[in-house]
C-alpha cells in the first residue's frame, strides 16, 4: 500500500524582510504540511536571513514535526557561492536539496539528497545515475507533464521519491543579470536590494497590458499561478509522493488548507479551486501538466 501523498512548502523565492520570514515559518509550524524547504535559491546577495537563521527556523519546524530540507542556490558562479553551498551540504542537521550539478557533486556519495527542480531530470537513466550518487527524492522539472511522469514513475529506481511542483508562480528562468535592478536602472553590484520592494515579484506586462511574467531579481517567473489542485487524483494514481506548494505572501494558510482538504477527501477539487482563484491574482495555469504551453489553462484547473 502506497503512503498517502505529502505536502511540501518549497523554498521562499522572494526577498521578504526578516520579520516576515520568521513569522511565515512560525505559522507553518502549525500548518498541515509534512516537508518544508528552507534557504535562498535565487540570489546569493540576499543575506538578511543567514544560514544560522535558517538552521534555527529549521529546528523550530523540526520540533513541530516537519521534515526540513535546506535548498541550495540554483545558479552558482562565484567561489563565495560555492563556499555557502558547501556549508549547506555539510550542515549535518538537515537534508539538502541540490539545485545544480555543483551541489549534486558535493553531496554525491556523502549524504542522501533531494534533486531540486533546477537539475535537469528528463529520463530514467539520469534518475538512475542520480540515485546511485545518493539522491532519494527528485522534483520533476516544471516543464514536464503527466506523459513523461507516467514513464518516469514506471522506471524509477527503488527508494526514489517523486515530488511535483503543484502550486505557485512557475520558476521559468535564471540569469546572471538582475532584472529588478535593470528595471530600476541600477547596477547589480549596487542594487540596494530593490527586490525587497516586491514581495510577490515585479509584474511584467505585454504592451497590450496583459500580465505575462514576474521579475524576481535574477529569476523570471510566470505571472499566472500554476495549480495542479484539479489533478490530485491523477497524481495519486501515478504514486507521486510529494506535492510542492511555493510560498507566496497572500493566502498561504488558505492555500495549504485547500490542498489538504482535497488530499484528505474532505473537499472536491472543484470546490477548492474556487477558493484558490482569489490567491492567483493573474489567473491559473496548468498547461505543462497536459503537454501544452505552460501558460494554458485546462477546463479542470
Amino acid at each position: 500500500m502506497a503512503e498517502p501523498m505529502k505536502l511540501s512548502i518549497g523554498p521562499l523565492l522572494y526577498l521578504w524582510d526578516r520579520d516576515a520570514v520568521f513569522e511565515f515559518y512560525e505559522r507553518l509550524c502549525q500548518a498541515p504540511v509534512e516537508i518544508v524547504y528552507l534557504g535562498e535559491v535565487v540570489c546569493a546577495k540576499r543575506r538578511n536571513v543567514a544560514l544560522s537563521d535558517w538552521l534555527d527556523i529549521g529546528d523550530q519546524l523540526a520540533a513541530a514535526g516537519k521534515a526540513v530540507v535546506l535548498s541550495t542556490l540554483a545558479l552558482s558562479e562565484a567561489e563565495s557561492e560555492l563556499g555557502a553551498m558547501r556549508r549547506i551540504a555539510e550542515n549535518g542537521r538537515f537534508a539538502v536539496e541540490a539545485n545544480d550539478m555543483g551541489a549534486v557533486n558535493m553531496l554525491s556519495g556523502n549524504v542522501p539528497f533531494v534533486v531540486g527542480p533546477h537539475v535537469n531530470v528528463y529520463n530514467a537513466e539520469t534518475l538512475k545515475h542520480l540515485a546511485e550518487a545518493g539522491a532519494t527524492r527528485f522534483v520533476l522539472p516544471v516543464e514536464l507533464g503527466a506523459e513523461v511522469l507516467t514513464d518516469l514513475q514506471r522506471q524509477r529506481p527503488a527508494g526514489m521519491e517523486t515530488e511535483v511542483f503543484g502550486f505557485g508562480r512557475l520558476p521559468l528562468a535564471f540569469s546572471a543579470r538582475c532584472f529588478t535592478a535593470r528595471a530600476h536602472n541600477v547596477a547589480k553590484d549596487s542594487c540596494d536590494f530593490v527586490c525587497a520592494n516586491y514581495p510577490a515579484g515585479l509584474l511584467l506586462h505585454t504592451r497590450e497590458r496583459e500580465p505575462f511574467l514576474v521579475i524576481n531579481g535574477v529569476q523570471i517567473q510566470s505571472a499566472r499561478t500554476h495549480s495542479l489542485l484539479g489533478q490530485v487524483g491523477a497524481l495519486r494514481a501515478l504514486n507521486v509522493d510529494v506535492l510542492r506548494l511555493s510560498p507566496q505572501q497572500e493566502g498561504m494558510v488558505k492555500i495549504i488548507a485547500a490542498f489538504r482538504d482535497v488530499l484528505d477527501g474532505g473537499l472536491s477539487s472543484r470546490q477548492a479551486a474556487g477558493e484558490l482563484t482569489r490567491y492567483a491574482e493573474h489567473g491559473i495555469c496548468d498547461g505543462y501538466w497536459h503537454q501544452r504551453p505552460g501558460m494554458d489553462r485546462s477546463v479542470g484547473a
Partner: peptide
Amino acid sequence: CVMVEGRCVLSSYVTGDSPNT
C-alpha cells in the same frame, strides 16, 4: 542567451516547445 542555458523554459511556457525538450 541572457538566461542560463539549459535551465530556461520561457519558450515552453509560451509555445509548449523549449530548447531542452
